[in-house]
Design a protein around this nucleic acid. Sequence first.
DNA 1: GGGCTACCATGACGGACGTCATGAAGGAGG
DNA 2: CCTCCTTCATGACGTCCGTCATGGTAGCCC
Lengths: 192, 192
Amino acid sequence: MTRTPRERMVLSAAQLVRIHGVGATGMRDVVAHAEAPRGSLQHYFPGGKDQLIAEAVAWAGDYAARRVARIAAKIEDPTPGKLFEAMAAQWRDEFTAQGFDGGCPLVATVADTAATSESLREAVGKAFEGWQRPVASALRELGVPAPRSTSLAVLMLSALEGAIVLARAHQDVAPLDTVVEELRPLLDGAAA
Amino acid sequence: MTRTPRERMVLSAAQLVRIHGVGATGMRDVVAHAEAPRGSLQHYFPGGKDQLIAEAVAWAGDYAARRVARIAAKIEDPTPGKLFEAMAAQWRDEFTAQGFDGGCPLVATVADTAATSESLREAVGKAFEGWQRPVASALRELGVPAPRSTSLAVLMLSALEGAIVLARAHQDVAPLDTVVEELRPLLDGAAA
DNA sequence: GGGCTACCATGACGGACGTCATGAAGGAGG
DNA sequence: CCTCCTTCATGACGTCCGTCATGGTAGCCC
């Protein structure tokens, strides 16, 4: 559990971006949140803020991908609809337990930097790709034909991200439940 | 076309937020973009940046709502699937014609301020609600039962917003096309 | 022990931010 | 003409930002 200061900073950056966005997340805030020495910033991240945020985005993408793989392996009688339900349930649980302060760091990074920093935009693109891959492969294992699996993975990610935004705006988890219920028959129908 | 300086500032704020997010959008940037006198800021928006952004968000919500109503009235042989396709096409066309610099200002505002400013979060919630309403009522006019129409409207907004984020991250409109194709049978099937 | 490298500490710099104070044009109404 | 009120102009203030420069410690290797 004890991580190196470098890891703590990347992780803290991801968490602060989730809450405040990229622009409002300061370097000093990150070191304070990570309880890391401020001097380590220029040592571990000579590329400055962009490098730190890029690593935070990459970490977030990896985390989401690992979470999908773990969820997919744990469901009993798995179906595509149940997989999506479990993915949404993670957000539902966090919102109800910890409030609506934190969103998806990938969405926040796109919203803040897509037009400004090509490197960060690419980092988010790769992160989404890495998240989409285990979803699609899980769908294939559940009997979804290969070409359809990537389309449905895109739909699942889109609907989930959008529902997260709506849920935060309304401070209500209902949008998450709604998209799960509406998408379930479509998803399960594709696994015939 | 000639608007009052006040309107121009609200409109410019919305456009800049779309591109750079709330944090990176400065008051000076807004007056410069609006070609408005800087002194007018404290006169028209004594509530400061929060008031300006809140009005920009409200304007964006109204704009989206009017756009939906106009689209719904213009489609021939309308179906729920075609309505969603037309909504996504607006974004598709803008991305291909003007690049991926601008996203949805509501998403950017949620990502940047949901945890910080209660008033802005509420403003975005109302904006989403005002956008969702014409979508749901258009669905009802197309034969979708009332209770289902709000659920499907939430699904449409979620999938659209998420696909916009994915499209910007990948600089590719494919996610928009994908969600339209995948959702079309589900949407049209609900209008039986 | 001397030197080299990795890691951390601290202060400063230049710039941008949101906000405020002060005041000037310019027409409306007495 | 004088006054009031809306609208705009401009400069300043305090704060925070990302970055950099400089220097200090700690441990390993020769």
